[in-house]
Structures are given as structure tokens and as C-alpha cells.
């Protein structure tokens, strides 16, 4: 049994193991990055660190979604060691590239047994299905567990 941090995209509920979440903040000013892939919403300044904000809905292929009035950002823990930005980018090659997801609402912390996770149901889109590691029935409804590595780095 591990604890999951849950959040909503529309009325769909998703979860991530709580240890992979660094913090959750209200959405703030996001600097868009021209020419970036569609799922990259932009960059924010989190107390002096630059965090790349990914649009989870785009990543999951969820269509017809408007940004909620009050969005939140789920900032992920750790982050991978970034590729060298080149020496001209300053000697911070070892700085972690921090990332976060833009979500609509935040749910409670839920305890669930990942062993009891079932594969995603058939009515989930193929793209989305690939990025989920399973679904769990909880007291609060169906919780879709995200495959974090796949979401961040897969295609």
C-alpha cells in the first residue's frame, strides 16, 4: 500500500506516487516557449529554479479541454540530470531539469495497493493507455495511475 497524490483533469482523476511529487502550487505566470512541442506549456520560476511545465492533457491526448479557471501545477521531485546546455549556458550542466504538470484540480492523498491495479479499460484512448500503468478502484472513484517515465520521456 502506498500513498498517491491525486489530481483532476476535467473530471478524470489521476494519481502519482506521493514520493515523486515535490510540491503542488497554484498556477502562476507561465512563460511560453516558441516553437516548443505542443505538450510543453512553458517555464515558470519556482523560487529561483526554472521548472518546465508540461500539459498533461496534451500528453494524454485528452481532447476538448479548456483550462480551468484555477489551475495547479504538480511539481515533480528530482528530475533527471539535464543534458549539457553547452558551456555557453553556464557551468550548471549538472543542474536538474525540473518539470511539473499543469492540472485542473487537486484531490486528496489516497492510499492504494498498486498490486491490485488493473490494466486501463478499453474506453481509454490508445495514447492515454500507453501512459498509464494501470487503474485502481478506490472509494472515491477510478484512479488512473500515471507511468511517470513514459509521460516525461516517452513519445
Amino acid at each position: 500500500m502506498i500513498q498517491y497524490s491525486t489530481f483532476y483533469l476535467g473530471d478524470r482523476c489521476f494519481g502519482l506516487p506521493i514520493l515523486s511529487v515535490r510540491e503542488i502550487i497554484r498556477s502562476c505566470e507561465i512563460t511560453p516557449v516558441p516553437l516548443a512541442p505542443r505538450h510543453v506549456r512553458g517555464l515558470i520560476n519556482l523560487r529561483g529554479q526554472i521548472v518546465t511545465i508540461l500539459d498533461l492533457a496534451v500528453r494524454l491526448g485528452i481532447q476538448d479541454r479548456q483550462d480551468a479557471l484555477e489551475s495547479h501545477v504538480v511539481v515533480l521531485a528530482g528530475g533527471e540530470p539535464s543534458a549539457q546546455g553547452g558551456p555557453g549556458a553556464g557551468d550548471k550542466g549538472a543542474q536538474d531539469a525540473m518539470a511539473g504538470f499543469l492540472v485542473d484540480g487537486i484531490g486528496d492523498v489516497v492510499e492504494a495497493d498498486e498490486g491490485r491495479a488493473k490494466p486501463a479499460p478499453a474506453n481509454v484512448s490508445e495514447a492515454e493507455g500507453k501512459l498509464l500503468s494501470g487503474v485502481i478502484q478506490t472509494d472515491f472513484g477510478l484512479l488512473a495511475l500515471l507511468d511517470l517515465q513514459g509521460v516525461l520521456h516517452g513519445h
Binding site: 516548443a36 508540461l54 539535464s82 549539457q84 549556458a89 550548471k92
Partner: peptide, 12 residues
């Protein structure tokens, strides 16, 4: 202060 481009933006 220059910070490297995030790896999610590689190739830009």
C-alpha cells in the same frame, strides 16, 4: 545568470 535550456526543450 544563464541557466541551461531544459531538456524538454532540446533541439530548439
Amino acid at each position: 545568470v544563464v541557466k541551461p535550456v531544459s531538456r524538454y526543450l532540446e533541439g530548439l
